[in-house]
Lab assay of single mutants.
Amino acid sequence: MQIFVKTLTGKTITLEVEPSDTIENVKAKIQDKEGIPPDQQRLIFNGKQLEDGRTLSDYNIQKDSTLHLVLR
């Protein structure tokens, strides 16, 4: 499925993911596309910070959902 990740600069990254993917996996995909190390990434969905060990389906993230990427 496709999800979107919006950065603070207003750029939107499109990712191909599975609901069973962990947040860690998603961060690795963002690193592949953008070169941002996962330990600098914080992903936010519906105002909640997403934890590495959880999956997209844990957070009820579905296709065409938009996550927000904050760098630390």
Rank of each mutant, 00 (worst) to 15 (best):
A28D: 13
T22L: 07
N25V: 13
I36L: 04
E24A: 08
I61A: 07
D32P: 07
K33I: 14
P19Q: 13
T12M: 13
I44K: 13
E16V: 06
M1L: 13
L69H: 01
G10Q: 06
Q2E: 03
D39T: 05
S20K: 11
Q2T: 07
Y59K: 01
N25E: 12
Q49Y: 14
I13L: 10
I30M: 14
T55E: 11
L15H: 01
Q31H: 07
Q31D: 13
Q41E: 02
P38I: 13
T66A: 05
K6Q: 11
D21Y: 04
Q40N: 08
Y59L: 11
K48N: 13
K48H: 07
K33P: 04
I36K: 09
K48S: 08
E24R: 12
H68V: 02
I61Y: 01
L56P: 01
L67P: 01
N25I: 15
D39M: 10
T9G: 11
V5G: 01
S20A: 13
E18V: 09
I30P: 00
I44W: 13
R42V: 13
L69P: 00
N46G: 11
Q62Y: 12
R72K: 12
K48I: 10
M1Q: 04
L71I: 10
K63V: 05
R54D: 13
L50S: 01
Y59H: 14
T66D: 12
E18T: 06
I23V: 14
E34F: 06
V5I: 11
D58L: 04
K33R: 02
G47H: 14
T7V: 12
I13R: 11
E16W: 06
D64L: 14
D52V: 06
N60I: 12
K63Y: 03
K33N: 12
V26I: 13
T7G: 08
K27M: 14
T9F: 02
Q31M: 10
K29M: 04
V26P: 00
T9L: 03
Q2I: 07
P38V: 15
G47F: 06
E51F: 08
Q62M: 10
P19F: 06
T9P: 05
D21R: 09
S20Y: 10
K6A: 08
F45G: 12
K63G: 09
K63R: 09
E16K: 07
N46S: 11
F4V: 07
K11G: 07
P37Q: 06
T55R: 11
I3T: 01
D21V: 09
L15R: 00
V26H: 00
I23E: 01
L69S: 01
L15W: 01
K33Q: 10
V70Y: 05
L50P: 01
K63Q: 11
M1K: 14
D64W: 14
L56R: 00
K63D: 08
N25W: 06
L56M: 06
S65N: 05
F4Y: 15
D52H: 09
I23K: 01
I30L: 06
K11D: 03
I44P: 00
P37D: 14
E34V: 15
I3Q: 00
D32N: 10
Q40W: 04
P19N: 10
L56I: 06
I3R: 00
G53A: 06
N60P: 02
P38T: 08
D52I: 09
N46W: 03
V17G: 14
G35W: 02
K29D: 10
D39K: 13
D58F: 12
R42E: 09
E51N: 09
R42N: 02
A28Y: 14
K27I: 02
P19S: 04
L43H: 01
L67R: 01
Q62G: 05
D32K: 05
D21W: 11
A28V: 07
F4A: 05
R42Y: 12
K11Y: 11
T66Y: 04
T22Q: 03
N46M: 06
G47R: 06
D32A: 13
N60Q: 07
K27V: 08
E24Q: 02
I61W: 01
K11F: 03
T9M: 13
L50K: 00
I30Y: 06
D21K: 06
P37L: 03
V5Y: 02
E24K: 02
I3M: 15
T22I: 12
V70K: 05
K33V: 09
Q2R: 14
D39Q: 07
N46F: 13
Q62T: 04
L43F: 05
L8E: 06
Q40D: 15
I44H: 08
S20F: 07
Y59A: 07
E18Y: 04
Q31V: 06
S65K: 09
K48E: 15
I61H: 00
S57W: 07
T66H: 15
T14G: 15
V5W: 01
Q49N: 06
N60G: 12
Q2W: 12
Q62H: 07
Q41H: 07
E24S: 11
Q41P: 04
Q31W: 04
P37S: 14
Q2Y: 13
T12Q: 05
P38K: 12
K29G: 06
N60S: 09
F4N: 09
I13S: 11
T55A: 08
F45T: 07
D21A: 10
L69E: 01
T14L: 09
L15G: 00
Q49S: 08
A28I: 15
L56Q: 00
L69M: 05
I36A: 09
E34S: 13
D21M: 12
Y59E: 03
L50N: 00
G47V: 14
I3S: 00
K29I: 07
E51Y: 10
G53S: 09
L8A: 03
L71R: 15
K29R: 08
I3L: 13
T7Y: 04
G10P: 04
D39W: 09
V70M: 09
I23L: 13
K33Y: 13
S20H: 14
Q49W: 02
R54P: 10
G47Q: 13
T7I: 06
V5P: 00
L8S: 13
H68L: 02
K11N: 12
I13A: 06
G53K: 03
G47E: 06
I36Y: 15
D58H: 14
V26D: 00
T22W: 13
Q40F: 06
G53R: 08
A28N: 03
I44A: 15
K48G: 14
I30S: 02
Q41L: 06
D64F: 03
T22H: 09
E51M: 15
L50R: 00
Q49I: 08
T55G: 04
D52T: 14
V26E: 00
T12G: 03
L67I: 03
T9E: 09
I44T: 04
Q31K: 13
F45I: 13
S20P: 05
E16L: 15
D58A: 15
T12L: 02
I3H: 00
Y59S: 06
R54N: 02
V17D: 01
I13G: 08
R54L: 10
K29V: 12
S57F: 10
S20V: 05
E24V: 02
L50Q: 01
E18M: 08
D32L: 11
Q31R: 13
E18S: 08
K33F: 13
I30D: 00
Q49E: 11
I44L: 03
S65M: 13
R42P: 01
N46H: 10
K63L: 13
D21H: 09
P19E: 06
L15A: 06
G35S: 10
R72P: 12
L69D: 01
R54I: 04
